[in-house]
Design a protein around this nucleic acid. Structure first.
Length: 572
RNA sequence: GAUUCGGUAGCUCAGCUGGUAGAGCAUCUCCCUUUUAAGGAGAGGGUCCUGGGUUCGAGCCCCAGCCGAAUCACCA
């Protein structure tokens, strides 16, 4: 509640605007005709008549006052443009208040204003708007961090005093977006990733659906869930960790293709690749298999890269990743042999354990054969796969929802696509043999007993559904956040989530009583008042007044000082 | 969870061996009609993350904690 000097100044400016009869928060619409970017791109000095009346709205982001004329910058959703305000243009009559007082004194950086005028080029050649009308649209009460930029000798943009503190950027994303325009760009691209995929899938006539987020049983992935409770039904519900089992029920129900962009929730560690809630798209298509699905993934992701970058090549950190089809394909055993020189395809659990130890792969007792193979792969191969690569044919133990391989014993028809050393999708020919599926669930229960707290639980209703018969189906899940990280060259998942999960902000919020609030608000308007006048204005009884003012001084929100004539109260 | 680094003005940061807290930008006052990190003159602004300790004296040293980042671990 402690206001900084600048915040007090802005509150005062707001009041003064009101006293001048200017509503700092007007309600009527403001008709914008142009955007900064469009004007800068299209204005031709030889044809100024094309832009002789433009109206823009946005935030004032800088101001250079030169006596009775000023330059300032307006930032709208498209970018920034400079505008020029001359006193005698916006105040053609005797009354120069709008320029001298409103523009120069009462407006601040960050205020939202509307400007009307004509476009011209300055002597230095910068396209600018010569303002003839100016309107206050919203007074901003908190000062923004000021980022300035210059162009160096090589023509590169240099930022000065950039707003970079990650904590503040994530906690106050709105400020981040105002001050760092590339952040808005990243999120636009994220949306483009999603829209491209959505259009791609819709064009194929697959049906976009919505399935429950609150689930009585969590399933479809190996992860710890968030748990909640429904009061009326008095039952435990889980936030979904995946939507796989529901989408497959819809395939049983008769759709040929269904997909869902879904927020999923996993109660696990956080890192630059993990946020407790994240987005996946899952797709299930009847009468297809995982080979078919690999082709679809290549085509779809290649299209995403093209839509965003106009090329299949994407710069990610130091690497250039080329999503052009076809991608490299390795079986998991081939990949391990390729990177370690060891053929583990025929090994049993004990031998795998020994191999893992030899390769310095950390293992523990709860790991079965499948998990061991996965660990060996994860440690030795995954990070080295920079260019998009399909890894196929996983051990059956770690894929309880995937169909057994048509001719390789002990494996399932599953693939992951890996790019930049990270998994970006996971897919399989879906297991549709209900007897086998029940047996796999039961193996999971065993693993759970062995100490694997991410083992899957048995879902009787799902089994009942596929007992009615689920056609041969190919299924896919793509992590939207990780794909967006690659496509936008972001180093952290927090950079592709508007509001990444953070620890709660530590804040000593002082809770005021009703009376205290009343007195404080009165005081806030004047910042300093004679005690008796304040008391009178508050209209409280002696006792209530005494309690309120003591409460405020105790919280250091008000300070009472004694002068020769009287007692004075000021904001603490 | 481990290790390392960090937290100082609204923002970005400096602060020597422990000796009265600094700069640029922002803010305020004044000058300035094509400037652009505008310029010139002046002013104000601090819980040095919090709590203990050492010391005549702590932004600095010690201990504990909070918050953040990077790397690793965990996490298909």
């Amino acid at each position: 509640m402690q206001l900084s000097e600048q915040e007090v100044g802005r509150r005062n400016a707001k009041q003064q605007l009101e006293q001048l009869g200017i509503n700092p928060y007007p309600s009527e619409l403001y008709s914008v005709t142009h955007y900064a970017k469009g004007i800068k791109e299209e204005f031709d000095e030889n044809k100024p008549e094309e832009f002789k009346e433009v109206t823009l709205a946005g935030r004032m982001m800088s101001r250079r006052i030169m006596g009775s004329a000023s330059f300032a910058e307006l930032q709208d959703s498209s970018g920034r443009i400079q505008f020029y305000v001359r006193r005698d243009d916006i105040c053609p009559n005797e009354d120069k208040t709008l320029y001298n007082t409103v523009f120069k004194k009462l407006l601040d950086i960050g205020d939202i204003i509307g400007i009307k005028g004509f476009v011209f080029k300055t002597q230095v050649g910068e396209t600018s708007v010569h303002v003839t009308e100016l309107k206050v649209l919203t007074k901003s009460l908190k000062p923004l961090p000021i980022v300035k930029e210059t162009i160096d000798k090589e023509g590169n943009k240099q930022l000065h005093d950039a707003f970079t503190d990650p904590e503040m950027r994530y906690r106050q994303r709105y400020v981040d977006m105002i001050v760092n325009p590339e952040v808005r760009e990243t999120f636009k691209q994220r949306t483009k990733v999603v829209n491209t995929m959505r259009n791609f899938l819709a064009e194929k006539d697959y049906l976009e659906v919505e399935t429950p987020i609150l689930q009585p049983l969590y399933g479809g992935a190996a992860a710890r869930p968030f748990k909640t409770h429904h009061n009326t039904l008095d039952m435990t519900l889980y936030l979904r960790i995946a939507n796989e089992l529901y989408l497959k029920r819809l395939i049983v129900g008769g759709y040929d293709g269904v997909f869902e962009f879904s927020k999923d929730f996993r109660n696990e560690g956080m890192s630059r690749f993990h946020n407790p809630e994240f987005t996946q798209v899952e797709l299930y298509v009847a009468y297809k298999d995982y080979n078919w699905m690999m082709n679809l993934v290549e085509e779809m992701i290649e299209r995403v890269a093209m839509e965003l970058h106009g090329t299949t090549k994407v710069q990610v950190g130091d690497n250039v990743i080329d999503f052009k089809r076809p991608w490299k394909r390795y079986t998991m055993f081939e990949a391990i042999e390729h990177f370690t020189g060891i053929d583990i395809s025929k090994m049993e659990e004990a031998e795998l354990r020994a191999t893992a130890t030899k390769l310095n792969v950390p293992i523990d007792e709860s790991m079965g054969k499948g998990k061991l193979i996965d660990e060996i792969f994860g440690e030795n191969c995954e990070a080295q796969l920079i260019q998009p690569t399909f890894i196929t044919d996983y051990p059956v133990e770690m894929s309880p929802l995937a169909k057994k391989h048509r001719d390789k014993d002990g494996l399932v028809e599953r693939f992951e696509a890996i790019a930049n050393g990270k998994e970006i999708c996971n897919a399989f020919s879906e297991l549709n043999d209900p007897i086998d599926q029940r047996a796999r669930f039961e193996e999971q229960l065993e693993l759970g007993k062995r100490g694997d707290d991410e083992a899957m639980v048995l879902d009787e209703d799902f089994l009942r559904a596929i007992e009615y018969g689920m056609p041969p189906t190919a299924g896919l899940g793509i992590g939207i956040d990780r794909l967006s990280m690659i496509m936008t060259n972001s180093n952290s998942i927090q950079d592709v989530l508007f509001f990444p999960q953070m620890k709660p902000e530590k804040k000593q919020t002082v809770v005021l009583t009703e009376d205290e609030n009343l007195v404080f608000e009165l005081l806030e308007k004047n910042s300093k008042m004679e005690l008796n006048k304040l008391k009178e204005a508050a209209g409280l009884s002696n006792k209530k007044w005494d309690k309120a003012i003591k409460g405020l001084t105790a919280n250091k929100l008000a300070k009472v000082t004694k002068t020769d004539e009287a007692l004075e109260v000021e904001i603490g």
